[in-house]
Amino acid sequence: MAVQQLTGEELSERVSAAVPDSVVASADGVLFVEPAKIADVAGFMKSDSRLDFNFLNSISAVDYINYFEVVYHLTSMNKHHTAIVKTRLDGRDELILPSVYHLWRGADFQEREIWDLMGISFSGHPNLKRIMLWEGFDGHPLRKDYL
């Protein structure tokens, strides 16, 4: 059975009903959510029996200079569908996002990597330290202003 992508438009209604004030927009098949609500939204998408996103494919961060985008690729191995959830963090300093470690242990290394290379920290991650580079390294080299 082939995998279908659930678009942001399809997800938007259910997510905003379950987690109030969480959805910012939905466009191009992507669901945009408030950064402070990301763990709540992820928790709903994982536990809801119709969505059932039990597998976290990847977490990526993109530096857009004025803001950062963190992208979650999710899959439900039981329901055979995927989704893309994004959240936007304005500014460049003291960026904090709720961790999804407690939902998917697979977030462990990826959140550490984003902290290490992009400088976004995750509240609730039990072991948030550098992963590719060594402790004491200065800066976050995947940022656009690290040249």
Binding site: N57, S58, S60, V62, D63, H73, G106, D108, F109, Q110
Partner: peptide, 13 residues
Amino acid sequence: RCKVRSPSLMNLT
């Protein structure tokens, strides 16, 4: 941006 989702890294979790 070119992000690599690496299976080895994830399996190592």
